[in-house]
C-alpha cells in the first residue's frame, strides 16, 4: 500500500481557470499553422504537382487512340476518362505532404509542445490532414486547368469540374489521414514515404485504364471492393456522361468512408504513440 493514497484523495483541485478554444476554431488554427509551414517549403509540394500533370499527358497521349476500340467508352473522350486517374494519383502523392509535416513536427519537438497544450487531439490531427487536402485542391485545380487546355469538355459544365475537385479534396483527406497515422506510428520520414506507396496498388486494382465492364478475373473482383473504383466512376460520370444520383452517392460515400476510417486510424496511432512513449 502506498503512503500517498490518502493525500491524493484529499487534495483540492486547482481551478479550471484556463479556458480552451472552441473545437472548430482549434481546427482552423491548426490548419492555418500547417499551411503556413507548407508554403514556406514549396519544394515539398511542387514535385507531386508536376508528376500529376505528367501522368495526365502520358496516359492521354499513349492511350487515347485505344479509345476508338474500347467498347465501354462509347462516344466519350478518353481525356475525361483518364483525367480522374491523374487526379487520384496526385491525391496519393500529395497526401504524403500531411504525413511528412507530422514527421517534421515530431522531429522538431513541436508536436510534443502542441500535445502539451489543451488542444484537442482530433483538431491537432485534422489541421494537418485538412491542410494536406487543401494543397491537393490546388494541385487538382492545376491539373484541371491543363486538362481544359488540352480540350476537356465537362458534360456537367463547371459544376462538374468543381464536383471533381470536391471529391479530390475528400479523397485527399482519406489518404492524408493514412500518412499521418503512419507518421505517428513510425516518426520516420522514409517509412512514411514508403507507406504512401501502399495505396498505389489501389489505383491499379480498379478500372484504371479501361471501364469496369472490360475487367475480368480477380482484378474485376478486386475492383468491386475497391473504393477507388466508385470514386473514379463518379468523377468520370461528371466529366463524360452527366449527373447520375446513384453513381454520385456511391462515389461520395466511398470518399467519406475512406476519410473517416483513416482519421480513426490516425487517432488510434496517436494513442498508441502516447502509450509507448
Amino acid at each position: 500500500m502506498s503512503v500517498y493514497t490518502e493525500s491524493i484523495g484529499s487534495i483540492q483541485k486547482l481551478d479550471e481557470r484556463a479556458k480552451t478554444m472552441p473545437f472548430i476554431l482549434q481546427v482552423i488554427m491548426m490548419t492555418w499553422r500547417s499551411l503556413l509551414t507548407i508554403f514556406r517549403t514549396p519544394a515539398a509540394v511542387i514535385p507531386s504537382l508536376i508528376i500529376s500533370v505528367f501522368f495526365l499527358l502520358v496516359y492521354d497521349s499513349s492511350l487515347s487512340r485505344a479509345s476508338t476500340f474500347l467498347p465501354g467508352l462509347g462516344d466519350n473522350s478518353y481525356l475525361g476518362f483518364i483525367l480522374p486517374v491523374a487526379i487520384v494519383s496526385a491525391a496519393l502523392g500529395g497526401a504524403g505532404v500531411a504525413g511528412q509535416s507530422i514527421v517534421r513536427d515530431i522531429e522538431s519537438g513541436y508536436f510534443d509542445k502542441l500535445l502539451l497544450t489543451p488542444v484537442s487531439r482530433g483538431a491537432l490531427l485534422l489541421g494537418t490532414i485538412i491542410s494536406g487536402a487543401l494543397i491537393l485542391v490546388i494541385q487538382t485545380s492545376a491539373v484541371m486547368i491543363v486538362a481544359v487546355l488540352m480540350g476537356l469538355q465537362s458534360s456537367t459544365g463547371i459544376l462538374g469540374i468543381l464536383g471533381v475537385v470536391l471529391l479530390a479534396l475528400l479523397l485527399g483527406t482519406g489518404f492524408a489521414g493514412f500518412t499521418v497515422g503512419v507518421a505517428l506510428r513510425t516518426g520516420n520520414a522514409a517509412a512514411t514515404q514508403g507507406a504512401s506507396f501502399l495505396f498505389f496498388p489501389l489505383t491499379f486494382l480498379t478500372a484504371t485504364f479501361v471501364p469496369v465492364s472490360l475487367l475480368s478475373g480477380w482484378i474485376a473482383t478486386a475492383a468491386i471492393y475497391n473504393p477507388i473504383t466508385y470514386i473514379l466512376e463518379a468523377m468520370r460520370a461528371m466529366l463524360n456522361t452527366g449527373w447520375d444520383a446513384e453513381i454520385m452517392l456511391r462515389g461520395l460515400l466511398s470518399c467519406v468512408g475512406l476519410g473517416v476510417a483513416m482519421f480513426i486510424f490516425a487517432l488510434i496511432s496517436l494513442r498508441t504513440r502516447t502509450r509507448l512513449k
Binding site: T20, M29, R33, S108, G109, Y110, F111, L116, T117
Partner: peptide
C-alpha cells in the same frame, strides 16, 4: 502545467511571435 522539455519544441519554419500567439490562443 507549463512544460519545457529537454528536446526543445519549436518549429524552425515559424517565427517567435507566431509560435507564442498560437500557444496563447490554444490556452484560451
Amino acid at each position: 502545467a507549463g512544460v519545457a522539455l529537454q528536446e526543445i519544441g519549436i518549429d524552425p519554419l515559424m517565427k517567435s511571435l507566431e509560435l507564442l500567439t498560437i500557444q496563447g490562443r490554444l490556452f484560451g
